[in-house]
Design a protein around this nucleic acid. Structure first.
Length: 255
DNA sequence: ATGGTTGCTTAGCAA
C-alpha cells in the first residue's frame, strides 16, 4: 500500500492540484495539513466523486488536518484529547484496516523564545503523551505530517544559518527526538542517507530553484510498520509549476 | 538588518 503526507497550504487554493495528484499517484491513504478551512467548507463532494473518503478536523483560516482514504476510516479521533483547552486543529487519527494513521500539523513556533515557541515545544510533549495514552509501539502505526522540525544537519540546506531558528533549533530537534523515542522511526531515512533532499522551500528568495529547503515533513513509523516499509520518497516535482504548495508530498510504500 | 511570497480575509496575521 501507498501512504503519503502533504501540507497543502489551503485545501481550497490547492484543490485542483490535489485532485490531479491523487489521480496520478493513487495513494491508499493521504494525510493533509494546513487545510485553512472549517469542516463546512471542506471539499467533501469533489473528493467523494473521485472515490476518496475523508476524516476532517478543520478550523477557520488557520491549521486544519485531514486523512483521505480509499478504504473506510474507522475510530476517527480529533485533537490531542488532553486537559489543555486548545482550539487549534492540529491532529486527527483514524484506523484503516490494520493500520493506525495520524495526521499532525506541529506548530511552527514563529521565533525562538516567543509564546508560539513555548507552545510548539509543549505541543510536541503533548503529542508524545497522546501516543502513550492511546497507542502502543507494538501496533502498526504511522505518525505523518508537517513537524516543522528538521531532524539532522543533512536535512537542512545551511545548518549554521538555520540552527538559531524554530525549524532547526537544538531544542526543537531534541523535542522531536523525545517524541520519536516512544518507538518511531523516520521512514524516509530507512531508504535514503544522502543530504540535500527537502520537503519544504520558502516561497521567497527563489528558495526552490536554489534548493534552499528543509526536510520537515515526515512519516514516522513503529517497528512493525518499519519492517513492512519498502520505499520512501519526496515528490519534489509537485513543488514545481503553477501555484504549488510550499511543501512537497512525502510518499511511503508498505507491504 | 531587511526583505522577499502566499493565503485568508480585506489590514494584518501566520507561515
Amino acid at each position: 500500500m501507498k501512504l503519503a503526507t502533504w501540507n497543502v497550504n489551503s485545501i481550497r487554493a490547492r484543490l485542483a492540484r490535489l485532485l490531479a495528484w491523487l489521480e496520478k499517484h493513487q495513494p491508499d491513504v493521504l494525510c493533509l495539513q494546513e487545510l485553512k478551512v472549517q469542516d463546512e467548507g471542506f471539499p467533501f463532494e469533489a473528493l467523494a466523486a473521485a472515490g476518496w473518503q475523508a476524516a476532517v478536523h478543520g478550523q477557520p483560516t488557520y491549521n486544519g488536518v485531514a486523512i483521505l482514504s480509499r478504504q473506510p476510516l474507522e475510530d476517527v479521533r480529533r485533537g490531542l484529547d488532553d486537559e489543555v483547552d486548545d482550539l487549534q486543529a492540529r491532529l486527527i487519527s483514524a484506523r484503516v484496516g490494520d493500520l493506525t494513521v495520524l495526521s499532525a500539523y506541529v506548530p511552527n513556533g514563529h521565533e525562538v523564545g516567543s509564546d508560539k515557541w513555548d507552545y510548539k515545544l509543549a505541543w510536541l510533549k503533548r503529542l508524545r503523551r497522546h501516543l502513550e495514552k492511546h497507542h502502543r509501539p507494538e501496533e502498526p502505526l504511522a505518525l505523518c505530517g508537517d513537524f516543522n522540525v528538521a531532524p539532522e544537519a543533512r536535512d537542512v540546506c545551511d545548518p549554521a544559518r538555520w540552527e538559531p531558528t524554530v525549524l532547526y533549533h537544538p531544542q526543537a530537534r531534541a523535542a522531536l527526538a523525545e517524541l520519536a523515542s516512544w518507538g518511531l522511526q523516520d521512514a524516509f531515512r530507512l531508504h535514503h542517507q544522502e543530504g540535500g533532499l527537502y520537503s519544504w522551500w520558502d516561497y521567497r528568495m527563489l528558495a526552490f530553484p536554489k534548493n534552499q529547503g528543509l526536510r520537515i515533513d515526515h512519516v514516522l513509523v513503529t517497528a512493525p510498520l518499519a519492517r513492512r516499509c519498502r520505499a520512501a520518497r519526496i515528490d519534489r516535482d509537485e513543488r514545481k509549476g503553477q501555484q504549488p504548495s510550499d511543501h512537497a508530498p512525502v510518499v511511503v510504500e508498505l507491504d
